[in-house]
């Protein structure tokens, strides 16, 4: 069970939601894919058990062999190569590691070398496995790090996995959600928040992922995001109040669900709602394809993981809920404490 938490902009509460969901779901796995500025580790304060350097391939030239034909310069769509004064110049941080220049060089003058772009840290914090991706400052893309993080973190037994995504809806977010079974979109109660929600809404629709919205920083007044969700028929999974105590604990890098019963209840209830919705999405799909799944694999459809969490909800195992469209139901499953 992989749940991705995303939002159209930073600061909406992705880390608050994903950290606290992972905390109440423990034993669980938390993966921080916000590799440009990972901060989930500040809350979990994990004991690091392993580090792995992440490298990409960068071309290097053998000047003895280079004849200046410029095939590589012409080929590079990213303009990472230039040839002046009988010399090839390679711009490492513009290179996207496609390897094309090496392939097109007729003189075999180009080869590849490893270049470190960051690392992943694997740690433990109580019953939560914490995976953190860290991209070195100035690097073009964190995708290789996210790829490796998800490869490592998703292979951690049958524990539920919570993916804390980077903000926005660009390639790094796509990489983070591509194998997720469910997407939780976090939004702020403003017009700007509704605009940003729309970006990730379009993304999860494009990826055909089941999803729901969590409204953060809720006040007892008109909420443009409520209207947006109502217009689009998007399910609201829960609401987190604009609460001084919660904000204060969170900004002190405390896991609020560990600090107060009312917050633990808030996130437990949210988790329960998410698992229930996942079961419903899987169920609507399952009605049609159950027999096919059974033919494919005897245990593809299993209730074990959901039951492990909540005793009664069933959910599909990895992959089998992919491609399920969210039900167009307006539901306000409030998780207010």
């Amino acid at each position: 069970m992989k749940i991705a938490v995303l939002s159209g902009k930073g600061g909406t509460g992705k880390t608050l939601v994903s950290v606290n969901l992972a905390a109440v779901a423990a034993p669980s796995t938390y993966i921080d894919c916000d590799v440009e500025e990972p901060n989930g580790h500040l809350f979990f304060k994990p004991e690091i058990v392993r580090e792995e350097l992440i490298t990409v391939k960068i071309p290097q030239v053998d000047e003895e062999r280079c004849v200046g034909c410029r095939e590589c310069v012409r080929f590079c769509n990213y303009n990472a190569l230039a040839y002046v004064n009988q010399k090839l110049i390679i711009f490492d941080d513009v290179c996207h590691s496609c390897g094309g220049c090496v392939l097109v060089c007729p003189e075999a003058a180009l080869s590849e070398r490893d270049k470190a772009i960051g690392k992943i840290e694997i740690g433990v914090s109580g019953d939560v496995s914490v995976y953190t991706g860290i991209l070195n400052t100035g690097e073009a893309t964190g995708i290789p790090i996210i790829h490796r993080l998800l490869e490592e973190g998703s292979d951690d037994g049958n524990k539920p996995v919570f993916i804390d995504c980077p903000p926005g809806s660009a390639c790094i977010v796509m990489e983070s959600i591509k194998d997720a079974d469910y997407c939780v979109l976090v939004a702020e109660p403003t017009l700007f928040g509704a605009h940003n929600l729309n970006m990730v809404y379009e993304l999860v629709k494009l990826f055909d992922k089941p999803f729901g919205v969590v409204l953060n920083k809720c006040l007892n007044e008109e909420n443009p995001v409520d209207q947006f969700c109502s217009d689009k028929g998007i399910e609201i999974l829960g609401r987190i109040p604009f609460d001084h105590e919660l904000a204060s604990l969170n900004s002190s890098a405390e896991i609020v669900a560990h600090k107060q019963d009312e917050y633990r209840e808030l996130f437990s209830s949210l988790l329960e709602t998410i698992v229930k919705k996942m079961g419903e999405s899987a169920g609507s799909k399952r009605d049609g394809v159950l027999s096919d799944l059974k033919k494919m694999s005897g245990d593809t459809v299993s209730g074990e993981r959901g039951e492990a969490l909540h005793g009664s909800h069933s959910t599909c195992s990895d992959g089998s809920v992919k491609g399920v469209k969210p039900k167009e139901v307006r539901s306000e499953a409030a998780v207010d404490s």
Binding site: V73, N77, Y78, N79, A80, A82, Y83, V84, F91, V94
Partner: peptide, 18 residues
């Protein structure tokens, strides 16, 4: 011709000038 590229326009433009 570098102006419409998605990235590295300065590098390609400098190549054109050179």
């Amino acid at each position: 011709t570098a102006a419409s590229g998605t990235g590295g326009a300065g590098i390609r433009a400098a190549q054109i000038i050179a």
